[in-house]
Design a protein around this nucleic acid. Structure first.
Lengths: 339, 339
DNA sequence: AGTTAAATTGGAAACGTTTCCAATTCACGA
DNA sequence: TCGTGAATTGGAAACGTTTCCAATTTAACT
């Protein structure tokens, strides 16, 4: 169909200069109503579309953001964090270029290089699990925001879930129901996994705040994603003074807990209450009873990170040196029927 | 740190002409080893990076692909399909620009418009559930490929899961174990939902191939994602000649089925076998026993769609008119312990 | 050493915008 | 009817590449 028309074609068609067409396009003041109409008509007739690269050349603004993820495929959360970033970017007239790195440093480096060649206005790095990341130095050439992860030296802006508060509030929800023996089924104890350490720290604080002594025997750790919930629940139940409530470090673990509880003929939440973490709708809604869970703020982190990028961009445009910012986002309890 | 250097800076630094630098960059023949070295040094010293927009202007190739999704956030599959497309694009030196439309026609149209302004070489539309889609006519200005969806008139290339074969093979797997009364828990019967109609058609074919009469009473339909599995299973079990195996239309439904089976004290797979659909690792691995499930080829669809885009691009470059192509991809059984 | 063909090199033009400056037109009051 | 300042307009230059052509250098022969 239509060939590719340029500003010149429009100008010719409308019988005006290219400068005028450009002014109409960017609706600058000082163009008479009648000229504007002529131009607008010409544009419509020729199905004209401005060329962004040419504009970029001239204005030096690419209106592009680079979005890097470590493992977009293996987690159901990827979508939310992308969406949060994308919608915020879109509102600001920016487009996201997405590259999945699979945690490969060479690929990460190559992707950043490509982003820089495209002259992105900022780079957003989203991790699919909360951990520390190290990015190649070249990334510093441009504003950066980390989502669901952080840099060891905190030199890069970042946003992460408030794991500790999440753990605390999960535990408090259980305490509010009158539970006093609350078990926790956690990941392997690893200081590099904030989800494990933070949630457990919150659990302890909640207990302490209610004057309940921490009991080591109520904690079960395992790195086996598939077995953790089932085996952990059985282990905890098979103790002298078994828990009447279970705080599962994630929803997947809660599936296993449900299975174990069913096997023992224990009713949820009457005999044993359960709270998960992650709020994966697909799991939480399907379990019976539906699972109460702490929601990870993935979408909000995506939004936060994109917003932070714009802050840095504006800041830099104003000549200021944008110091990095850090945020911890709340993981609210999504109450269902399991507690 | 370093200012932004251009070809001219490199040329000056190396004491050669810009044409020569360009030749080195695109490693064209006919540049002497010693000149190439000088240039390479200058590039390294000045931390030079070519400007893609300028290149795009001159070569008319944006090396950009537009990626549209209807609902990236609400499904765990989004990541896989994006990844499939992204990795294929990357291999071909292309970058994906991602926009989430939330099924909003206005947004979809706007996104396509932005893609065209950026001069994308092709547009990939990925749906998060298998259904028919209608895209604005402007999309035809550029190669298009649909993933996990299709256009009513089949004028656009598309790739979808082979639902019927999936349904057939799931049923056959159950038949192979000797089951003769096989229940199916399905979505609401809706001709616009190929997952519902296709999987059930496959189920019937498998039965027919084994000389087993189709029994309407063994099918349970429901559009309630949360209740389907549980209620459906109970309903099917409460019949005169109850099924000894259950084909669940998705894994989420299988969770409900497990719960119902447990409640009735029926062991899986000894007393009742179960097969799901979707192969959501997070569910299938956590269930006890682990759930056998038909895997949706999301990643492969992403790859296929990107590859198809390149076929069309090449085709068009060669002056041919690329006719649309269509594919149905296999949903293989991932055998675990539930059947 | 001299000739010629081949290999290498430099640099102008073009890609499609925006922006700036100079030139033109307009509106209005004297 | 003019003159004046403001509003509008046209078009050249520039953004950073690639590509092409012409010019120069090199290599290979007599």
């Amino acid at each position: 169909m239509a060939e590719k028309n340029t500003l010149n074609d429009i100008a010719a068609r409308a019988g005006v200069g290219v400068g005028t067409v450009s002014r109409v396009l960017n609706n600058h003041p000082n163009v008479s109503a009648k000229t504007r109409d002529k131009v607008l008509h010409a544009i419509a007739e020729l199905d004209y579309r401005p060329n962004f690269s040419a504009r970029h050349m001239r204005t030096q603004r690419s209106q592009l953001l680079g979005f890097l993820t470590d493992k977009v495929a293996t987690t159901p959360f990827a979508g939310q964090i992308i969406q949060g970033a994308q919608e915020t970017a879109w509102q600001q007239g920016r487009i996201l270029m997405v590259v999945n790195t699979d945690s490969d440093p060479a690929l990460t480096h190559a992707a950043i290089e490509v982003f820089l060649e495209r002259d992105v206005e900022g780079i957003l790095y989203a991790a699919m699990s909360h951990h520390v990341v190290e990015l190649p130095p070249s990334v510093h050439k441009v504003p950066v925001a980390l989502a669901n992860c952080f840099s060891a030296d905190h030199a890069l802006s970042s946003v992460v879930p408030d794991e500790e508060r999440g753990g605390r509030e999960a535990t408090e929800a259980l305490l509010r129901q009158g539970h006093r023996r609350i078990g926790m089924i956690n990941f392997a104890d690893n200081p590099a996994v904030p989800a494990a350490t933070g949630r457990q720290a919150g659990y302890r604080k909640a207990l302490a705040a209610h004057g309940i002594a921490f009991d080591e025997r109520l904690i079960y750790h395992s790195e086996d994603d598939d077995e953790r919930g089932f085996v952990g629940t059985l282990t905890l139940l098979d103790q002298p003074d078994p828990p009447t409530a279970l705080f599962c470090v994630n929803d997947r673990t809660a599936i296993g807990a449900y299975n174990a509880l069913h096997e023992r003929g224990l009713r949820i939440p009457d005999q044993v209450a359960v709270i998960g973490f992650d709020d994966q709708a697909i799991i939480a809604g399907a379990l019976r009873p539906t699972l109460s869970s702490m929601a990870l703020p993935h979408r909000a982190m995506g939004q936060w990170a994109a917003t932070e990028l714009f802050r840095q961009i504006d800041r830099a445009a104003a000549g200021h040196d944008p110091a990095p910012t850090h945020a911890m986002l709340h993981c609210p309890l999504v109450a269902r029927r399991s507690h």
